[in-house]
Design a binder for these strands. Sequence first.
RNA 1: GCACCGAUGGCGAAGUGGCUAACGCGCUGGUCUGCAAAACCAGUAUUCAUGGGUUCAAAUCCCAUUCGGUGCUCCA
Length: 398
Amino acid sequence: MESLGIERPEHIARATEHIPEMVELIQALAAKDIAYQTEDGSWYFRIARFPEYGKLSKKDFEGIEDGARVDVDEYEKDAARDFALWKAPKPGEHHWDTALGAGRPGWHIECSAMAMRYLGADIDLHAGGEDLMFPHHENEIAQSECATDKPFARHWMHVRFLLVEGKKMSKSEGNFYTLRDLLLKGHKASAIRFLLVSVPYRHQLNFTFDGLTESTNAIERLRTFYQRLKHGKWAESAADGAGSDADLAGQIRAAGEKFTAALENDLNTAEARAAVFDMVRAVNSAADAGGLLKSEVDAALGVLALFDGVFAVLEDKDAAITRSALEWAEREGRMGEAAPELLANLALSDEQIEALIEERNMARKQRNFARGDAIRKELTEKGVLIEDSKEGVRWKRK
RNA sequence: GCACCGAUGGCGAAGUGGCUAACGCGCUGGUCUGCAAAACCAGUAUUCAUGGGUUCAAAUCCCAUUCGGUGCUCCA
């Protein structure tokens, strides 16, 4: 999670610590005769009492015969689809003794109970994987709305599963990778994050190694741009061509607005991304043409800050993250899985790199290009790329 | 088998009734540069899985087919 720059939740709730809330919820349903107890002591939800059942997953249960497919090991439920709220313990099974009798919670009830406890009876947003829509989320809705008579969640976000190299990820397909696997193969954490977040959650993402390369390159472009703005010297007022693009300020503002509007439209990250790249081109172009005004640079940096508040890829933490993955591999005895060029690329520290660049700058000043190029070649071989620009010498790790 | 969702350039991917089909990567040519890199400019889908239909107008709506994802039993 941290490697990908994902923030920790404010609350992490555990089902086993919320048994009383669940019991209370089931009792509320029982008071309305929506929950009922069977002979073995389990409690079930009476789906017949919730006509809207199936509204989320667009399932139409009309015409599906109750009892057409009743499992032999099920107890005497009133209807086959009624789901368990509380399960009586099987002999020797771990259980809680509560007002409902001994037992353990059914799946579904803990989500309703904990959501209500921390977020209230009607929540704004409920997220989950597409596989949970039915029956889990459908059952959450049923038990929550019957208990409170309020809409349970105003918006649902169901994230689609990703494909890996065009196929569903599975161990038998051999395309199952953990984050650490990818880091050890030499992929950057930022590229993984950017690839995952570049396709809107509602759409299926095809996660490929080509895609990781693409993301790496796209991030490089953004970081180069960011560094250029941050470290360049820009005119305070219009002169010598700076500020000659009268339209630029408007374009930067429009990019920021388009970025926000795209995210507000069901988190359309692909469109939000596009808005930023539009701005990058416009500002780079103006910078090449005659220079930028400080005010334009500040505005563009403002849009980048907006962008990075969501995408979080501009600051280069990749080397540090990869190093900690390597430390993990070391401890686990899995260094053999690390890509050889990865070790080579991390051989030099930032200080060593900067010392070499300083030496190269001296050589170039004396027009000793042979020495300068030799240093550049050495750095390239160790995974460090050099860029000479009007704004100074920049370097980055491959 | 049934239900729901999806299929857009070499690759990834926006766009869901009407401006030249965004954006990124890649590729080709050019500008710039001591050489590079970066950056910029130009080019790169007469066409949106296939077949039919609706409409003055369809990538966008409807039907069928093909392919892919999820669910349809338990457990979380």
